[in-house]
Computed example of a mutant assay.
Amino acid sequence: MTIEINLLPWREEQRARRSKRFYVALGLAAVLGLGGGYGMTWHYEQSTSAQQQRNSLIQTQSRQLDSAIREISELEAIREQMLEQVRIFTELQVGRTQTVHVMRDLTASLVDGVHYVQLNRQGAALRLAGSAENNRQVSDQLRALAAAATFTEPVLSEVEAEGGGERRRFSLGMNQQMPQAGLEGDEESPLVEEES
């Protein structure tokens, strides 16, 4: 006796199961692929968004720094203007008593027998013309002016006899020395107060 086994329905069922598993696996792969694609897209969008926020923050900070730099530049320009004004005020404050110093030192250094005839001042340069009874008095006058703190070393430009006698007419040039700001002694302060 021969047993005949019909495997056709079993194979059909197996093929249906395999087909079902294949479609399930295909569906799972599609779901995983779509999910992975969506996840990657979301990740890149989040990364792009975060980078854009960082870029925006950097641009904002850069604009603030540019504004601060402009403000600092303006403040430095104002500072330079103020320093220039302070320098000018200091020069004026120091220089306002210079005429008094010049006259004081001219009279204090005047040697007996010497008379000043003319005084010209142009900036710090002084030109002085005078007359003396003899050459020795002219030399003494030059030494006295050189010893004064207000003047530089005087330079004698001419000496000539006046009226055929021993009397001498002379002219000389020198520069006025400006004292350094803040270095004037306490003796100068009464002059400043008197002029105010």
Rank of each mutant, 00 (worst) to 15 (best):
G173L: 03
T107M: 03
K20C: 04
R11H: 10
V94E: 04
V117W: 06
L8R: 15
Y44F: 05
E188K: 10
L172Y: 00
T152V: 07
A50D: 14
I58E: 12
L119N: 11
V159Q: 03
A147Q: 13
L183V: 13
Q122T: 08
S49R: 11
T107L: 04
I3Q: 10
V100A: 06
N6C: 13
Q14D: 01
L83C: 05
E74M: 10
Q122D: 10
S19E: 11
G164F: 02
E166N: 05
Q53L: 06
L57Q: 12
W42V: 06
L183S: 14
D105L: 08
E153I: 06
G35L: 06
Y38D: 10
A125C: 11
E193P: 01
T90M: 03
G182A: 11
S73H: 05
Q98A: 15
L57K: 10
E12R: 14
S73P: 01
S19Y: 08
A29P: 00
P190G: 04
Q59V: 08
S47R: 11
N175W: 02
T41V: 08
E13N: 15
I58T: 10
S47D: 13
R87P: 01
Q14A: 07
G35W: 08
R11T: 10
E45M: 14
W42A: 12
L8H: 14
H43S: 10
S131W: 02
N135G: 15
E184W: 04
G164M: 02
D66R: 09
E193H: 07
V100T: 04
S67W: 08
A146H: 09
L106I: 01
P9N: 05
E187D: 13
V117R: 15
L126Q: 00
G123D: 15
T97P: 01
E133C: 03
V192F: 05
E187T: 06
L119S: 10
S139M: 12
E153C: 03
E71A: 14
I3W: 11
N120D: 10
Q93N: 13
A181Y: 00
E71D: 15
Q98P: 03
K20Y: 05
N135H: 14
I69L: 15
E166K: 04
V155W: 03
E76Q: 11
E13G: 13
G130P: 00
E12P: 04
E74V: 14
R96Y: 09
Q93S: 12
V111H: 00
H101V: 00
A129K: 02
H43Y: 15
L7T: 08
E193R: 06
P179N: 07
A129M: 01
M40H: 09
A68W: 04
D140C: 04
L119V: 11
A124D: 13
A25M: 08
I3S: 06
S157A: 08
R70E: 13
A149F: 02
A132Y: 01
I88L: 06
R21W: 14
E193D: 12
I69Y: 14
S56Q: 12
